[in-house]
Design a binder for these strands. Structure first.
Lengths: 366, 366
DNA sequence: CTGAAAGCGCTAACAG
DNA sequence: CTGTTAGCGCTTTCAG
């Protein structure tokens, strides 16, 4: 297979028109409105274009003129590459890609380095709108996105006044899960959560930190747990919450270890994501704790791997979420008020939750 | 969190300059060359910008002027969303994203519908270059990409004269695998391969079809197998090759079934991808065939799941491939000749390959 | 340090 | 069906 040699951007629409002795409009029409000129002339235009190596209208110039870039920007809080590792993020991405595909829109992944606060990439992105996926409420990139005069949809977090949004009811979802654990009899629980703020804190999270978390998804889940267990007579101040900055199974494992070291009497580990829960399962196994007989472990998200191991968790429709975000962005906006899509979640009772063992059982076996 | 109301694209650089009573250059400099004006003036410019709701230089206009879009286009042969399901593609994507991130370039996923031959999206993409990932040599989107006056890198396939490329030595890789099987004693094998052309053919692939495949990766692997087994005295014309259009484990399972139905004496199933191999393993289990005692199964790629189940396969560095493609595209091109990166592969001897059973063993047990 | 001039390449009325 | 006229919003020499 050979490719034609091309000169450095030689021909333009204007030069083609000159060569043909027609106006630029006519050439433009040949590409954009075939019905506006005779087939014969169009053929001649296209043929001359080929001869001159004219690659067709320049997309950037066209975008400037039409004020349409034909692409949707996606802003993620993590490194781009992280999105390709986290199953939940991936599901979202797939849904969003589906929506873009359907509308013939490109998907422009904005290169963001969470370490540096380099907002320039947001300003440089030639897009018709942004989808922002799960970023902290004080994210400077988010601020940059909002400063651009294009429609924006936020997925999961944060809540931004006046901006379209798609997400789930985190509080309701976690409440159902908590109630289940309470009904099973768990009162002594430990919590593993994801990062609560942009600064790294791999360790216990104070109540202060919990309630001022910059990720409202995590905040809602923690508050929901606190309320549910509070009503069941558990003093939340006594419940240990361990935070991890990196969202990996290794984080889950080390957090579980930290929790179990601090209080071996814990009967249930509540994790705010499946990834963390999978890590917790690994750590339990390492310690010779049987799940669920000796320890209950729960997750959140409902990723495929969770399904496979029978994790008790809350399933949320991540693909649907991505698709909904895309549809919201690409559909006609409602000028009167921001739109909001709240998707359903489902409590999945797996094989990793059971009533706690009594103290006797703990020491003398079942 | 509140957001400021913004009017529909009210302020421009020019209007800002007018308001301030300075030239456009000065305003432009305030954004792009802070050292070119006094801090005081710059502060005034930025402050007025905020007051007027000027969001900063328009990215599209800037791109037109500077002839830089700040993004890399990615062309995939499948639906965008498919890429998020195939682990090998995902690894590539991650590597490419890493490279883009490092260079501060956006990654623009081109929306391609493989059903329709709509090439417009390629022409519309405002990008500085393209990475093309594993498409057939007659793909119209590829042709569209090549017609654009921007640098291009092809990953895996096809070979395009004069175009930078990154890939592996498929022939060498498959030859090592074939030799292993031959050494184990396999002579009666069946082959499962991915799509060989843009038209759907779920069934046996004739030798004609094998050697004229539009995906040279598949072609090279099949030809490599044919040569190796040919040298070992196997008449390739007698070897059944089953093709599947969709690249899923379900395809692998049904292809394995088709092969084993046609010839129950087959001792080894050679699959040109791990995904297909995983499906073949499922089908073998369903039939009560023990792997590797009753049947040898091999894959290609070295995805994580293959590792987990101990599949005998060829590992290729997919992430590295993506990164290499990005580096090639973003680095300085070599004007004298096309660059080519061939990455190393590694034969992974897993637990799914063993010597074939003798006929006696087959009927009377080991 | 600032401004004037000159487009980047294209599309969209509108009039012929 | 074709051409004329006007920019889209910005950057960049090059003088001052």
């Amino acid at each position: 297979m050979a490719r034609s040699i091309h000169v450095r951007r030689p021909a333009t629409l204007a030069s083609l028109a000159a060569e043909l002795g027609v106006s630029r409009t006519t050439v433009s029409n040949a590409y954009n409105r075939p019905d506006q000129l005779s087939p014969e002339l169009r053929r001649r235009v296209l043929e001359t274009a080929r001869r001159l190596g004219y690659p067709g209208p320049d997309p950037v110039a066209r975008s400037l003129r039409t004020r349409k870039a034909g692409a949707v920007g996606l802003l993620l809080t993590e490194n781009l590459s992280y999105a390709f590792r986290d199953p939940a993020a991936l599901g979202f991405l797939e849904g969003l890609a589906l929506a873009c595909e359907g509308a013939g829109q490109g998907l422009h992944l904005v290169p963001v380095n969470p370490e540096r606060e380099d907002v320039a990439a947001v300003h440089r992105a030639g897009v018709d709108g942004f989808v922002v996926y799960s970023v902290p409420d004080d994210d400077p990139h988010l601020a940059a996105v909002l400063s651009r005069p294009v429609p924006t949809v936020v997925a999961d977090q944060p809540n931004v006044e006046g901006v379209d949004q798609v997400g789930i009811d985190d509080r309701a979802a976690i409440t159902a899960l908590a109630q289940q654990l309470i009904d099973l009899g768990h009162r002594r629980v430990g919590v593993l959560c994801m990062r609560l703020s942009r600064d790294r804190n791999d360790g216990f999270a104070s109540q202060e930190r919990q309630s001022t978390a910059h990720f409202h998804v995590q905040r809602a889940r923690l508050n929901g747990l606190a309320d549910s267990f509070g009503k069941a007579g558990v003093d939340w101040a006594s419940v240990r919450v361990v935070e991890r900055f990196d969202h990996t199974t290794a984080s889950g494992a080390s957090a579980a270890a930290q929790l179990l070291d601090a209080d071996p009497q814990i009967t249930a580990l509540v994790c705010t994501s499946d990834i963390l829960a999978l890590g917790a399962l690994t750590e339990a196994r390492r310690r010779g704790l049987r799940v669920p007989q000796d320890l209950t472990v729960t997750g959140f998200d409902g990723i495929a791997e969770a399904d496979r191991v029978g994790l008790t968790t809350v399933r949320q429709p991540v693909l649907e979420k991505g698709r909904a975000a895309g549809k919201l962005l690409l559909g006609a906006p409602d000028p009167t008020r921001p739109r909001q899509v709240i998707l359903d979640t489902e409590l999945v009772l797996g094989a990793t939750s059971a009533p706690p063992r009594t103290s006797e059982e703990r020491w003398f076996g079942p």
